[in-house]
Amino acid sequence: MSDFIVAFESAYGSTQQYAEALAKRFGVKALSLDQARAELVGKTDARVVVLSFVHGPLNPGAKFIVDTELSGHRVALCTVGMTLDDVAQKKDGVAKSLGRKADQVTRFYLPGRLNYSELSTAHRSTMWTIVNMLKAKPFKNDNEKMMIDTFDKDVDRVDLSNLDAVEKWARS
Rank of each mutant, 00 (worst) to 15 (best):
residue 100 R to G: 11
residue 168 K to A: 15
residue 108 F to I: 09
residue 111 P to K: 01
residue 98 L to T: 11
residue 49 V to Q: 04
residue 13 G to K: 10
residue 33 L to P: 01
residue 87 V to A: 11
residue 6 V to A: 01
residue 68 T to F: 01
residue 94 V to A: 09
residue 30 A to L: 03
residue 97 S to T: 11
residue 79 T to G: 05
residue 112 G to R: 05
residue 172 S to K: 11
residue 66 V to R: 13
residue 79 T to V: 15
residue 34 D to C: 01
residue 171 R to Q: 10
residue 104 Q to R: 14
residue 89 Q to H: 13
residue 26 F to A: 14
residue 28 V to R: 02
residue 154 D to R: 09
residue 107 R to K: 14
residue 117 S to E: 08
residue 162 N to A: 09
residue 126 T to E: 15
residue 18 Y to I: 15
residue 126 T to Y: 15
residue 27 G to E: 04
residue 8 F to A: 04
residue 151 F to N: 09
residue 128 W to C: 07
residue 93 G to Y: 10
residue 58 L to N: 14
residue 46 A to E: 12
residue 50 V to Q: 04
residue 170 A to M: 12
residue 33 L to G: 03
residue 130 I to C: 05
residue 22 L to R: 02
residue 153 K to M: 13
residue 79 T to Y: 04
residue 40 L to D: 02
residue 28 V to C: 04
residue 153 K to I: 12
residue 138 P to M: 01
residue 149 D to A: 14
residue 113 R to S: 14
residue 156 D to V: 02
residue 165 A to Y: 06
residue 127 M to V: 07
residue 2 S to H: 12
residue 43 K to Q: 13
residue 61 G to Y: 05
residue 70 L to Q: 06
residue 38 A to F: 01
residue 16 Q to W: 01
residue 152 D to C: 03
residue 42 G to C: 06
residue 116 Y to H: 15
residue 30 A to F: 03
residue 129 T to Y: 12
residue 42 G to V: 11
residue 171 R to P: 07
residue 127 M to Y: 13
residue 168 K to W: 05
residue 166 V to N: 06
residue 164 D to C: 09
residue 152 D to T: 10
residue 32 S to H: 01
residue 11 A to F: 13
residue 171 R to A: 09
residue 131 V to F: 08
residue 81 G to T: 05
residue 156 D to W: 06
residue 80 V to E: 04
residue 8 F to I: 11
residue 14 S to W: 08
residue 17 Q to L: 11
residue 69 E to R: 11
residue 91 K to I: 07
residue 147 M to L: 15
residue 73 H to K: 05
residue 95 A to V: 06
residue 43 K to S: 10
residue 155 V to D: 04
residue 6 V to S: 03
residue 68 T to Q: 05
residue 61 G to I: 12
residue 138 P to H: 02
residue 64 F to T: 04
residue 129 T to I: 13
residue 67 D to R: 03
residue 121 T to P: 01
residue 141 N to P: 10
residue 77 L to C: 08
residue 162 N to D: 15
residue 141 N to Q: 08
residue 152 D to Q: 11
residue 97 S to W: 00
residue 85 D to M: 12
residue 19 A to H: 09
residue 147 M to C: 10
residue 80 V to A: 00
residue 92 D to L: 05
residue 114 L to W: 13
residue 55 H to S: 09
residue 5 I to C: 07
